[in-house]
Design a protein around this nucleic acid. Sequence first.
DNA 1: GTAATAGTGTCTATAAGACAGTATCAA
DNA 2: TTGATACTGTCTTATAGACACTATTAC
Lengths: 219, 219
Amino acid sequence: MEQRPILSVDVVLLTLKAERLSALLVRRESEPYAGRLALPGGFVHVDEDKDAASTALRVLREKAGVSPPYLEQLYTVSGATRDPRGWSAAIAYYALVPQFESSTAHATLGDVDALDERLAFDHDAVLQLAVKRVRDKTSYSALPCYLLPERFTLGELQRTYEQVLGERLNKASFRRKLAEQDFLEKAAGQRAGAHRPAQLYRMRRRARSSGLVIFDRTV
Amino acid sequence: MEQRPILSVDVVLLTLKAERLSALLVRRESEPYAGRLALPGGFVHVDEDKDAASTALRVLREKAGVSPPYLEQLYTVSGATRDPRGWSAAIAYYALVPQFESSTAHATLGDVDALDERLAFDHDAVLQLAVKRVRDKTSYSALPCYLLPERFTLGELQRTYEQVLGERLNKASFRRKLAEQDFLEKAAGQRAGAHRPAQLYRMRRRARSSGLVIFDRTV
DNA sequence: GTAATAGTGTCTATAAGACAGTATCAA
DNA sequence: TTGATACTGTCTTATAGACACTATTAC
């Protein structure tokens, strides 16, 4: 049988850091592209990973210690020349998580709109594709909810949408759309402060577990 | 090094046949699933295929003798159990072509809404995902143009949209939207008949070659 | 009281659908 | 003339943004 191509899985882990949409990047230790920043990724372990989504989750667990509430397949990059080791394909996923403390030493969070290094392989293009996907979906879905803790106020949610999109939104329209789409429900409690307290909300169960992820399952 | 997974490419070739959205299906001759209908597909030839899109085009050329004007990556299915030969991944593409004479013996065109057989592997799910993608995109893009010959009338285009979507559209709104979006231009000639002749149109160059396909190139 | 954010009502501009009207061919 | 489809103008309805107004807390 002919030589099989190399198959790996890469993950774009997106979160908010200092009010900027940021991605997890790791410094490569081995060739090719040793020393360069890259998306976290790895080879499929055929005896351990049920499918490619499982590989993506394992990679995130091993490289950043996170377990994302949202994971979706993004695109599969492939070709004879993208990896000097030979014909390769990389199934790329993107994941959204609430703000977290990056625990490991070799991992950093980079502002997706202001990277100061070129990434290894074709990872710059993959990262930009993930950002585009998230921004496109944000305008008609509840995606940014996964960048917040389980309970949040409508003000916090609107700021999150604004940080993802990079533009201001109209408060009345924003709330009207949320009310129509009906993927939020009131949660117990309010957020206090030097102002009128705000009602807490959370995603409805069915919104959290369905509709957003095609084929792959939300974890 | 650990055992590498199997990598293949499958293609959902969509066209209109008898006014129904239909997909190209081939009868499998070898195991697994010998005798079952399946999507056309094949393994990557690492010495021949530049990337997975090239594999998809080669498969369509070999199995149906067609060269599609539109090709887009759809989804990569993967897992330990989807193929009895071992852990495998299949990069699925979908293609759109104008009506054509299916030349080969083992290939048939099946109405995507009325298949009378279960397909091999997870191809039923892949086919339905392609149909969903095309229908979703149809409402805000020029995608159905690729199901028609290069020149067509606005009436023919509206009927194509209606056949893809399975619902009637409002003529004035349809034409208003086309005029706004500006991806069509007048072509030479008119379509005659027992009625007022209709102006012929075609896609603008830049619409044909850009905007519709992410990452992969239109051919 | 002020400052700050929460939350709501309403006006207006824009886009979409409904529908009817005129246009131009063959027979 | 009739019948068929091409094409257009306008009315109505639905949607989205602008904006202002009230509500409730801390200080």
